[in-house]
Design a protein around this nucleic acid. Structure first.
Lengths: 297, 297
DNA sequence: TTTATTATTCGATATTTTCGAAGTAAATTG
DNA sequence: CAATTTACTTCGAAAATATCGAATAATAAA
């Protein structure tokens, strides 16, 4: 016996459990000659009889009893595994890492195609800093990372940036404030109360550059790591805040704000980072297409 | 998945252990396309991916990790079983029950063909009363019972007597005693010191009948359940004892006795009792043939 | 006895596994 | 950055294996 044949073991085990080949046939949906033959092959491969032919029936030999004990355990485990796999169902889960600075609404818009499709996936989202997320990606704890800054090329981690599209950046504020700054935009922003992302974010770097180019020095009222927090402050009237133009309508409705104007010349890009150079995962491909469509309009 | 395919499981497990299809190929002596294909079939039968294709390699998914844990246990058990079966070797053991009253030398002569043959069997002998032995036979704890009395036909136990042959019964004694009783045998036995089997034995019943028919009344010095004990007493000169003529030479040599004469008209028969009506077990068939040959000469 | 049940043997047939050839994609190399 | 090597996959055809139908044997039950 080179290697244990589990098919034979199963037949043997069923016969041993049921007490006869005839009964095992019903359980296994096979004919007696098949089981009898396979049993014989098994016995020959083992080199010992498993059953003693007695009258027109079979009785386990010592070896047979030994084998049955192991088979009991083995098929108990096998059954348990099958059950677990059945319970789990076809999960097709997809784990995404979201960089903190990416607006939740953008993330939702980008990921939405994954859950509303013919072949829906179970979406698992994690948030964190790009360093943490990219190392998780390398460890295959994540299937993809959504970020607004592409991963540096010379990075130790093998991963590829897939550009999803870009959007202009606009300024929004509570209607009372917005009215005041809408006229003579962008010059009006000089000394205006401003809520901005932290220095680490891509948008902040672009905005600082834009303010410089336009010779505007706003009054920075607050800095936020989480983009949702900015908007909550903005809704309360704490100041003007920047947001992707792509979700302009949502911003105005959800946070009861008004659009003031676009930061001309700067744009926010979004990237899907994955370990595959070419996107193959159907979920990612779908998302990529939808993103391009959305962010080009 | 109707039923877990252990072949697929083994391939999956090997790939998971070795880390790549390529390495698994070497272990399993298969080509990559086989393993890749079978793995795919397995994944489809499960309904979930087991590996995530990453670059030109594979990484376990959550489901894959679950399956691997079970596979570890299952194949550990399988390996253990294989090892035990390998260690055991082709044992072909054969368990015989010997009725107390059957002479050990007769038993040896009958069973000898089983151990000195091209396909030797491991002989396991038990001794006991016919009742105990025949019930053990029914429970398949014994393959055969050797006895000098056939099992009654109407017995509750399903078993068949196979007549092995018969032998005359002779009288033996220490040479000093033998000389005295050899002349005028069998009349000389009147009042002679006699060592006999217990009433329960077949030989004793036959002998009592023979004494009656020949109008001899010996002086019974002792009764023994075990036939070997009679001979030990006989060797010491305690009296005349009966023994199968078939082992006459052995008796004379081993116990330093002399043959006095045969109990004409009576014979001892030996039977192999087994659960099979027709002897099929090659060991038993061989023994049966050898016994017939021996006891006909 | 006859009948029903159980297991086995022997081909013929189906199914499953395996491999060769060719292709894709990613890592490595010059 | 093109060429080479490595690793996996896809698609048939071939090989190995399992299954079954028909016939047989033996035992148990009626």
């Amino acid at each position: 016996m080179v290697q244990l044949n589990f098919n034979h073991l199963r037949y043997f085990w069923t016969v041993a459990k049921e007490g006869s080949i005839a009964r095992a046939c019903e359980v296994l949906h096979l004919t007696p000659q098949t089981i009898s033959g396979q049993l014989k092959v098994f016995e020959e491969s083992i080199g010992n009889a498993l059953f003693q032919r007695s009258g027109r029936g079979l009785v386990l030999t010592d070896t047979g009893r030994l084998v049955k004990q192991y088979a009991d355990e083995i098929f108990a485990l096998g059954g348990e595994l099958s059950q677990q796999l059945r319970d789990a169902g076809p999960v097709n889960s997809f784990t995404v890492g979201l960089v903190d600075s990416i607006p939740k609404l953008i993330a939702y818009q980008l990921l939405e195609p994954l859950i509303t499709s013919a072949d829906p996936v179970k979406l698992v989202c994690h948030e964190g800093k790009i360093d943490q997320l990219s190392s998780d990606l390398a460890l295959h704890k994540l299937d993809m990372v959504l970020t607004d800054t592409p991963l540096p090329a010379g990075h130790a981690i093998k991963a590829y940036n897939h550009h999803l599209g870009s959007t202009q950046v606009g300024f929004y504020a509570h209607r009372r404030i917005a009215r005041k700054y809408s006229a003579k935009f962008p010059a009006s922003l000089e000394g205006a109360p401003m809520l901005l992302p932290v220095q680490a974010s891509a948008m902040r770097r672009d905005l600082d550059d834009w303010f410089l180019r336009n010779s505007i020095q706003p009054k920075i009222t607050g800095e936020f790591a989480d983009s949702a927090l900015i908007k909550a402050f903005g809704e309360a009237g704490a100041g003007i805040f920047p947001a992707p133009a792509a979700i302009s309508e949502h911003i105005e409705q959800t946070y009861h704000c008004r659009f003031i104007g676009n930061a001309d010349g700067i744009s926010e890009s979004y990237y899907a980072v994955s370990v595959e150079r070419k996107l193959k995962n159907p979920s990612v491909v779908r998302m990529n297409e939808a993103a391009h469509e959305w962010l080009s309009s």
